[in-house]
Each structure stands twice: as C-alpha cells, then as structure tokens.
C-alpha cells in the first residue's frame, strides 16, 4: 500500500484518530511565562480549550493544550501540535493555510499535512468543521500576536 492510500483506509484512520483522542500529544498546560496562551470556546458547541505557544527566535519550541473537547477537536489539535513544533513561523503559517484548504475541500499540499490528512473528509460534516479547526484557529491567533509584537 502506498503512503497516500493509507488515508483512504478507514480502519487505519479510525485507529489514528482514536489514538490521538485517547492519548493526545502535547496535552496538559504548563505554568511558564515563556508561553503565550489563548482560550478558545466555541459558541456553537461545548468545545472549550486553551492553547499555549512557546516561540524562540522565530522557531516554535513547544505547543501545549488542554480543555473539554470532542474527538475531532482533540485529535486535530493534537496533530496540529505534532506538525508545528520545530517549524519556523512562516512554515507554520503555510501548514495552517494548507490545512484550512483541505478542511474547505479545496486543492491542498497533501505531503505537507502528514497525519492531519486524516481530516480530509471532515468537510462532509458541515456542522463539525469548527471542531476540526478550533485548535488551528487558536494557534493561528497566537502566531499573529507574536508577529505583531503583542505576544
């Protein structure tokens, strides 16, 4: 099976999402003033998460998150943290842009999104797009604040 086909294999995708939901990566907040943080509460559902970002010299050193969240928001935020840690801010913004294109069912860069390709069919559940983007929107706001000197 080639790499791209894995993301059409329902069993493997289910395992992947379940794993990120039950054992989310970079989960749990830290008490450290190097981090800037953002509270994201969806008005339309119960999702309520906080995201933390540590940037040093334009490089994302760490991302943390915690809160009350559904399978989709937890797994998508977990994958987001894996993808963005270690990237510089421009690379991170590019990945976020490509992810949003995928979520909106537009052409996007498959290779760039790695495991996050698991969400390529979320657009079919229109009422849950917010769940798949809440963590990504949060990190996007934190990066903007960094670049504008507010972070």
């Amino acid at each position: 099976m080639n790499y791209k086909d894995i993301f059409d294999d329902q069993n493997m995708m289910r395992e992947l999402l379940l794993d990120h939901y039950q054992n989310p990566h970079n989960h749990g907040l830290v008490d450290n003033n190097r981090y800037t943080s953002k509270h994201m509460a969806s008005a339309s559902c119960i999702d309520d998460i906080t995201i933390q970002l540590d940037v040093d010299n334009d490089i994302i050193k760490d991302i943390r998150f915690d809160g009350v969240a559904c399978t989709i928001s937890t797994a998508s935020t977990s994958m987001m943290s894996d993808l963005l840690i270690g990237k510089n801010l421009n690379e991170a913004k590019h990945i976020i842009d490509e992810y949003m294109k995928m979520i909106n069912n537009e052409e996007y860069d498959f290779d760039l999104l790695e495991e996050a390709n698991a969400f390529k069919n979320v657009y079919k559940q229109a009422n849950r797009i917010k769940c798949a983007t809440i963590g990504w929107d949060g990190i996007s706001e934190l990066i903007n604040e960094k670049e504008n000197g507010n972070g």
């Binding site: 329902q10 995708m13 289910r14 999402l17 379940l18 399978t71 698991a118 069919n121 559940q125």
Partner: peptide, 10 residues
C-alpha cells in the same frame, strides 16, 4: 461507540 462516531468523519 468511539469507533462508530469516528467513522462518520472518515
């Protein structure tokens, strides 16, 4: 169950 709810998104 967890499996079936995730399958909706795949």
């Amino acid at each position: 169950n967890l499996d079936s709810v995730i399958s909706v998104f795949l």
